[in-house]
Design a protein around this nucleic acid. Structure first.
Length: 265
DNA sequence: TCCTATGTTGTATG
DNA sequence: ACATACAACATAGG
């Protein structure tokens, strides 16, 4: 499910456990979920450590534990974070449960596309520091976007928007939402956009990111019906702007929805 | 049975 | 080496 706003929502679910120590942990499917981490080390070090803070970077979350433990979590396609009572019994798809005195913190993921990285370092781990800067940080400028699109000139713009190196946290629905707002056909090649189209694309990217965080990132409210979001999945969906039928095809390897009258090749 | 699913990566190909 | 395309991963639900 998760793109940057949903990831932000899930990250906050564990805030209930801030500044409390871990009593014990439960790990399941560790060969896959910890495929680039170290489950033994996590099982050894997390108990008795204290959850201090967390952050998001794109679709990654990082949880900091005192004294020197870090838990990086990616939710894949179907991962979730939640909390439950302190005596919670893990279900089939619960791959990590951190038991605290007052509650348990749960990572669950039926499809196992998610991943957990555990590190024992003083500072935040290197892989975290090397993630792409947030789209809404001042360091990312239109010229960076423009240069990136030129470097991927022969990719459909839809595929380019899904590349986490430049568009961290953007996923399938946000990419479609951005292109719909910018009135750009998802099959247009990234290198074919005019300077004006690039400018509009970048402006709408920022708008979609900010609005998604505001609406979904806080309490998972439904986006307003004026967004493409509420119309894109169902057969027979109509464009909220033009009222005409939406189209869906696979572009850039993902099901893509667009409004043919508004987004032209 | 077959198709779909808000993601990423390894591999093949150009 | 770089860019692009696509199968593979694993499970559930329509």
């Amino acid at each position: 499910m998760p793109e940057l706003a949903e990831v932000e929502f899930y990250r906050k679910q564990w805030n209930l456990g801030l500044n409390q120590s871990i009593q014990s942990i439960h790990i399941n499917s560790e060969r896959r979920i910890f495929r680039e981490g170290n489950p033994q080390l996590a099982a050894q070090r997390l108990p008795s450590s204290i959850l201090k803070e967390s952050q998001c970077s794109g679709k990654w979350m990082l949880f900091k534990f005192q004294p020197t433990s870090w838990l990086g979590i990616h939710l894949g396609m179907t991962g979730t974070l939640s909390t439950a009572a302190a005596d919670y019994s893990p279900l089939k798809h619960d791959h990590l449960v951190l038991y605290q005195k007052k509650q348990s913190l749960i990572f669950s993921d039926p499809r196992l596309f998610g991943r957990i990285r555990f590190e024992q370092t003083h500072d935040a781990p290197l892989w975290w520091l090397q993630l792409a800067p947030s789209l809404i940080s001042p360091e990312v400028k239109l010229k960076d976007i423009s240069a990136f699109l030129k470097n991927h000139a022969r990719s459909p713009i839809k595929a380019a928007l899904l590349m986490q190196k430049r568009f961290p946290g953007i996923g399938n629905w946000m990419a479609d939402e951005i292109l719909w707002r910018a009135s750009i056909h998802p099959r247009r090649l990234a290198g074919s956009l005019s300077p004006l189209e690039e400018k509009i694309l970048w402006k709408e990217t920022l708008t979609v990111v900010r609005n998604a965080l505001k609406v979904i990132g806080n309490d998972w409210s439904d986006p307003p019906n004026s967004w493409l979001f509420n119309h894109r999945w169902k057969d027979g969906g109509l464009c909220p702007a033009t009222g005409s039928a939406l189209l869906r095809e696979t572009i850039g390897g993902r099901t893509t929805c667009w409004s043919p009258g508004r987004q032209k090749i």
